[in-house]
Amino acid sequence: MAKEIIDGQTMTRALTRITYEIIERNKGIDDLVLVGIKTRGVYVAHRIESRLKQLENISIPVAELDITPYRDDQTHEETDLSSIKAEPLDIDINNKHVILTDDVLYTGRTIRAAMDALMSVGRPKKISLAVLVDRGHRELPIRADFVGKNIPTSQKEKIKVSMKEIDGEDKIEIE
């Protein structure tokens, strides 16, 4: 049985707080770039972007990143990473401060893959990570700079994030 642990209001608040923290820690947001990891990370990025725009009146570029080719936890087939061609981002990330956004941070493998993908298309000045949920159980030395909610979980549990843009409503469930 799925149990709702975070409702739409709390999710909205978490995103707003992440936005405040991004402003607070960056002393000016001029060289920021948001890169959302497909699928829900993109919506997270767009929501942060619209908040920054409302608060600071500056539009920050947002890009979508498809990391499927870089994943190491989905296919068991041998894949030669060097043979994969990176999908070009539609923005320039060279010398920018890239904030990667995703919905759930779990093993850290997605983020590693995302960083590989980023590095293959440019050389950012800095990469930070913003996630809606940090559920623990990292398998790689990765941590998020901006966390919406820390949700301690067991590895048997599943975290399901729903977002208005694709799922019709905002909520986070555990099952």
Binding site: T12, L15, T16, T19, Y20, R51, Q54, L55
Partner: peptide, 13 residues
């Protein structure tokens, strides 16, 4: 006034 509307700028709430 005990009930007056306020907008949160970031989210429009």
């Amino acid at each position: 006034e005990s009930s007056l509307a306020v907008k949160e700028v970031a989210s429009g709430k």
